[in-house]
Amino acid sequence: MALLEVKKMNAGYGDADVLRDVDLHVEEGEIVAVVGSNGAGKTTLLRALSGVIASRGEVRFAGRDAAGMAPDEAFGRGLVQVPEGRQLFDRMTVQDNLRMGAFRRRDAAAVRRDFQRMYELFPVLGERRNQLAGSMSGGEQQMAAMARGLMAAPRLLMVDEMSLGLAPVIVERLLEVLTDIQKQGVTVLLVEQDVHSALSVADRGYVLERGRVALTGPARELLDDPRVKEAYLGL
């Protein structure tokens, strides 16, 4: 059974629906990419999933009905977001930012192990654990934001626009990390404008266009699809 299953989701702001009849599913252990251009509804999808805005339609998460949850309830069930723009606590240390990710966890020993795991996954964060998060570079901040999300021990990590404003070599490194954490058993929903990067690391992909799923399939096939090439890759 799918970890996340969305059927006929409609969501938007006020009377205007941005998402129209979106069907989507994420299997346990997968990396699924949702790609599309500006205004296609990618962020709206994430906001609807994490309960920040209301939605209509069917949402099941880990076998239970998950439509219309409040944000902290969604978080409690393991739907964790790495928000667009990173949203770190700039005036707190890297270590305190990671602690914030584990805010709701009460298994102290496992949290300690996860700190260790994060510093192995992102050695630079280990070196800078006592530095203020706001004083780091954009790439380091993105790593801190992902580590903070992972500290919540998510069942599904939803990563929003990870590559925004970062140098290609940094994006490359972050994509490697995604496959690393996939190997450690974390399921990832990656929402990206950078179609090529996202599909190169994902198992499957969805192409959103004007709030609808225009194309879906294995990421490899999407990368080779002439329509994707033409519209998004400029080939």
Binding site: S50, V52, P71, D72, F75, G76, V80, Q81, P83, Q87, L88, F89, D90, R91, M92, M100, G101, F103, R104, R148, A152
Partner: peptide, 11 residues
């Protein structure tokens, strides 16, 4: 420090 982020962290 950042209320939006606090909300995202399930507080």
């Amino acid at each position: 420090e950042r209320e939006d982020a606090a909300e995202v962290m399930g507080i």
